[in-house]
Design a protein around this nucleic acid. Structure first.
Lengths: 203, 203
DNA sequence: TGTACATCAGTGAACGCGCGTTCACTGATGTAC
DNA sequence: TGTACATCAGTGAACGCGCGTTCACTGATGTAC
C-alpha cells in the first residue's frame, strides 16, 4: 500500500530475478559441460557477472548445485508424467525413460552421484536433497500403484525399482570400448529385463 | 644360472616387494580413511617413504587406486565364495553379502564409484578396470547359473542383478537422518525384495 | 685388489595449477530532514 | 530543493589451501678393467 512497501517488494522480486539468472546460467552449462569442469568462475562467466557476485545470492557452490539438481528432477518428473499420460503406466516405460534421460544428460547423472556420495554436506543443502528425493520417489510411488503394486508395500517397492534402474545406468553408462549407441542399447536391454522382472515380481 | 642373472632376479623381486609395500599402505588407509582424503602424501606417510618415491613404482595415483580396487574386488569374491560353499547359492545371500561388504567398506564404494564416473581415465588403467569388472561378473555368472539361470541368458541377467544391488547401496548407504544400523536394515530389506523379485523372475 | 664409472633407489623442495571463497573498495540508488 | 547519510549490488584481486607430479641431487651398490 505505502510507496515504501511497494519499492521493497520490487527490490525483492528483482533480487529473485537475478538469482534466477545465475541459476539459469548454471543449468545451461550442465547441458554441454562435464560436471567436473563446472566451477564458480564458469557459472559467473556464463551469467555475465563476476564470481564474487554469485555470493550475494547463494551461500556456496553446493547450494547452487542442489538447486540445479532440484530443477532437473522436476524436469524429469514432468517429462515422465507427459510420457505416461498417453497410455497405462508400465514399469518398462518408466525404466527406459530414465535410461534416456540420463544418457542424454550425463552431467546430471554426475551431479546426482556427487550428492549421493559426498560426505559432509551442509545441513541446509542436505535437507533440500532429502526433499527432492522424497518428492521424486512419491511420484514414483504413484506410478507403481497405477501399475498394480498394493498401496501398503509401494514405498519399498519403488525404492528398490528406482535404485535398480539407477544402478544399471551408473555401471554401464560409460562402459569402455563401446560406442554410445551400443551402450544405450545395452542399457535398454537391461532396463527391459529389470522392468520385466519387477513386473512379474509384483504379480 | 650366471651370477648376473640371479642378481637381476633378486633385484626384480625386491622391487616387487617394495611395490607391494606401497600398495599395502594404500589398502590399509582405505580401511579407516574416507576415500576423498587419501592422497599421495598420505600413502607415502603410511608406507614410511617420500611421495616422490612412489613414482618409482607407479606411474600415477589412478594406477595405485586401480590396483587397490582390484585387490578389494578379489577379496570380495573370495569372501562371497566362502560364504556360498556352505549351502546352495541363493540370490538373497549374494545380495545381502554385497550390502554388508560395502556398508563395512565405505571407501571401497567410493573408490568403485570414482572409476565408474570418472572421465578421461588413461588407457592402461581403464583396461585394468575392464578386466576387474569382467573377472567379477564372470564369478557372478557362475552363481547365477547355480541358482538356476539358463547358461544362454546368464550374462545379461547377472549384469542386471549386480547393478541393481549396487544401485540400492549407492542410493541408500548414507540416507540422511538415519542411524547406520537403520540404514543397513533398510538396505537389507531392499536387497531381500530385489533378490526375491529376481529369483521369481528367472523361474 | 684398486679405481673409475654406471645404475638406480630415495628424497626435500618446489612446480604449476585450480579451486571455492573473501576482502576492500566503488558507485549507484534511495532515505531523512 | 538540497545535502548528508545509509544501503547494497557489483567487482578485481587476492587469500589460502591442497593437490598430483617433477626436479635436481645424494648416496649406496654393483660392474669393468
Amino acid at each position: 500500500m505505502e510507496t515504501k512497501s511497494t519499492f521493497l517488494k520490487l527490490k525483492q522480486s528483482e533480487r529473485e530475478y537475478r538469482r534466477e539468472l545465475i541459476l539459469d546460467a548454471a543449468v545451461k552449462l550442465f547441458a554441454y559441460k562435464p560436471f567436473a569442469a563446472i566451477g564458480m568462475r564458469d557459472i559467473a562467466r556464463q551469467a555475465g557477472i563476476s564470481p564474487a557476485s554469485i555470493y550475494r545470492y547463494f551461500p556456496s557452490r553446493d547450494a547452487i548445485l542442489m538447486e540445479v539438481l532440484d530443477q532437473k528432477i522436476q524436469e524429469g518428473k514432468v517429462r515422465q508424467a507427459k510420457q505416461l499420460q498417453k497410455r497405462n503406466p508400465d514399469l518398462e516405460d518408466v525404466a527406459q525413460g530414465m535410461v534416456d534421460f540420463f544418457m542424454d544428460k550425463d552431467s546430471t547423472l554426475h551431479l546426482l552421484a556427487y550428492f549421493l556420495l559426498k560426505e559432509g554436506i551442509d545441513p541446509d543443502t542436505l535437507h533440500k536433497f532429502q526433499e527432492a528425493k522424497d518428492y521424486f520417489l512419491n511420484h514414483f510411488d504413484e506410478i507403481m500403484v497405477q501399475a498394480g503394486v498394493s498401496q501398503s508395500g509401494v514405498r519399498i517397492f519403488s525404492h528398490a525399482f528406482f535404485s535398480s534402474i539407477l544402478g544399471l545406468i551408473l555401471v554401464f553408462h560409460s562402459q569402455a570400448g563401446q560406442e554410445k549407441a551400443e551402450r544405450r542399447r545395452h542399457l535398454h536391454r537391461l532396463a527391459k529385463l529389470t522392468a520385466a522382472v519387477f513386473s512379474k515380481g509384483l504379480r
